[in-house]
Simulated assay, not measured.
Amino acid sequence: MVNGETLEARLAILIDADNASASHIEELVVEVAKYGKASVRRAYGDWTKPNLSGWKSTLLNHSIQPMQQFGNTSGKNSTDSAMIIDAMDLLYAGNLDGFCIVSSDSDFTRLAARIREQGLTVYGFGERKTPLAFVAACDTFIYIENLTVKPAPAADQVTTPWKRSSKLDKLLAEAVDAASADKGWAPLSAVGSNLSRLASDFDSRTWGYPKLSDLVQAHPDYVVLYGPNGGGAMKVRRK
């Protein structure tokens, strides 16, 4: 904290351009801003290849530095190796609080785990096809599809029936139970933290709601309590 202000987390965005689409980068940069300031922005690939030609304007518009890596040997992913080496250099430089690894490739699973071992936060970004091992290795994993799909209306505007999901029901029950205190009430903020710990890829947008509060209010098994005059911290408990 400096002059009474909390410092933003310093983050590095490392993009596997061979395994990510330039069309989603604008939404991704906006999402990253929720977690901190992206002081390092790099995208890795063989920029001499025609399949990466569409990246040029995206790189310029978002101040992302292209990192050239030639594919020296057929069948070997030189891009992944270059990205991992740079990530370790940045890690040991000690100037960052976290990393945003953009890829749907399981090759970055050990990198994510290693960064976490050093006490830094890892945010993963990838498509739903991303292997579970990489998803679990991140502190938080955000599916690219959730950044581009228009969310459902707020809970008080929803008229369609709630769609049951045993996975979601189990996660919510465990998160609420772990955070509950007086008369079963649990602070919504604590429930959200528990959900992230239980499942790194938990995201209310996956279920069609822009915020956790909207999802919980729409869920038929839970009651939401607002603070005085509709403000303050929200609480939730099972019905």
Rank of each mutant, 00 (worst) to 15 (best):
V2A: 14
I13H: 13
S21F: 14
S23Q: 15
V30E: 15
A33E: 12
G36T: 05
V40T: 10
V40W: 04
D46N: 15
W55M: 10
K56M: 04
L60A: 08
Q68P: 05
Q69G: 01
S74L: 13
K76G: 00
M83K: 12
D86W: 08
A87S: 13
M88R: 00
A93W: 02
A93V: 00
G94C: 02
G94V: 09
D97V: 02
F99D: 08
F99Q: 07
S104W: 00
F108K: 02
R114Y: 08
R128A: 09
R128M: 11
K129P: 06
T130H: 13
T130G: 14
T130C: 14
P131S: 04
A133M: 15
V135S: 10
A136E: 12
A137M: 09
E145P: 03
N146F: 05
T148D: 15
K150W: 04
K150G: 01
P153R: 10
A155G: 06
A155E: 00
P161H: 06
W162I: 02
K167M: 06
D169Y: 03
K170T: 05
A173R: 15
A173K: 15
D177E: 13
A179M: 05
A179T: 06
S193P: 04
S196Q: 13
A199V: 03
S200K: 10
D203A: 08
Y209N: 00
P210H: 08
L215K: 07
V223A: 10
L225Y: 04
P228K: 13
G230E: 13
G231F: 13
K239Y: 03
